[in-house]
Design a binder for these strands. Sequence first.
DNA 1: TCTGGGGTCCTAGGACCC
DNA 2: TCTGGGGTCCTAGGACCC
Length: 423
Amino acid sequence: MPVYALVDANNFYATCEKIFAPELMDKPLVVLSNNDGCIVARSAEAKALGIPMAAPIHQHRHFCQQHGVVIKSSNYTLYGDMSARMLSILQDMCPRVESYSIDESFLDMAGFPDITKYAYEIRRQLRRQVKLSCGIGIGPTKTLAKFANHIAKNQLYWGGVFNALDHPSDMLDALMAQYPVSEVWGVGRRLTVRLNADGINTVLDLKHCGPIAIRKRYGIVLEKTVRELNGESCLAIAEVGEPRQQIMASRSFGTVTQDVDAIKTAICHHVSRAAEKLRQQHSVAQHVYVMVRTNPFRDQDVPYRRTTLVPLAYPSADTAILMSAALAGLQQIFRPGLKYHKCGVMLGQIAPVGNVQPDLFSPSDDPKRLRLMALMDNINRVHGSNMLRFASLDLSNSWRMRAGGRSPCYTTDWRALPVVFCR
DNA sequence: TCTGGGGTCCTAGGACCC
DNA sequence: TCTGGGGTCCTAGGACCC
């Protein structure tokens, strides 16, 4: 029988910040999204003050000042490195791991003896080695492991580990009856409204729905969810290392801009980042999507949102080729006089380098250019990102995002190593 | 004044073919 | 006068996740 464990770090971003700033250990702390826009993580103390998730910070700045809440910009270099350390510990303790998000992993624990005891040991190791506190939920399907994780985090009695397989089904049903259907993994805002209108209010209500009827009314995704709630595994582990099918890079501008040159620079910057990721997974792309938009939250601005797809003549991972395609796309969708708020690119139709057979009629990247790209990636890896870059990235700096309260990159930059004083 | 970014999967509908 | 229907492929967009 399949057994899945979901390991989820508590208040991940907030905890990463506190690990390297012990003076903040008991203080309420929030972490902001890119561009210092909204709140994306809260420490336990900040949650206790009632600060909501995903709220724009400007609506709560006054409250935070009044209550001494520490406000940090997000530092994805630090969180990404802490996440990699967490993942490596999990991979040491379990051979099949899916890194589901920056702070969550699914473990395939089928065949493990005494799984609950082992989960407590995983939790202990994560705390000892990287100072992260985790909740672990265990169940026969991913959806049930998610639900069990929710119990592990919300009911302190279980000490951070809840194994659905340890308990009789009537007890699990009683737990499911306590939680709203919106807590189910895969049930978002829209589905919740529709389900509630159909009289399906709790997790248990959804579990008791017929999968066929659900498929007819809501589609195959929710059907799988219902089956999973009933213990029938429909979603398998996707192991670490599978290449991405789309690679995106997008950002809001620090301040809105009408300047086409600023947007061009930003687009080149995004292409550069996406292409680096593309080469890192040894792939090539055949489509470049370009996106620009104005600020949808400002009623006084003309709403404008366009994407366009630029197909390449042949699949490529050459930054220069991807850039010129993206700039051609931008030219199609840029309208003068609008106040642009965000732009981005997405690479699509991605395939492994080896799958592309070069011949007379289907050309591929010039090997010399590929060596140049590899050299650039290597230099940037060793000496810091953007040490070697395309000149087009320097045309204008006016699009860059705000990040006023970012902490140092303690674990990835020699110059930012934490300093310890001994008395 | 100030509202993130990066993914996945599914579906509806258009274009095209025979 | 009367002008099909079914299949495939592709894309845009929606819903979800963290």
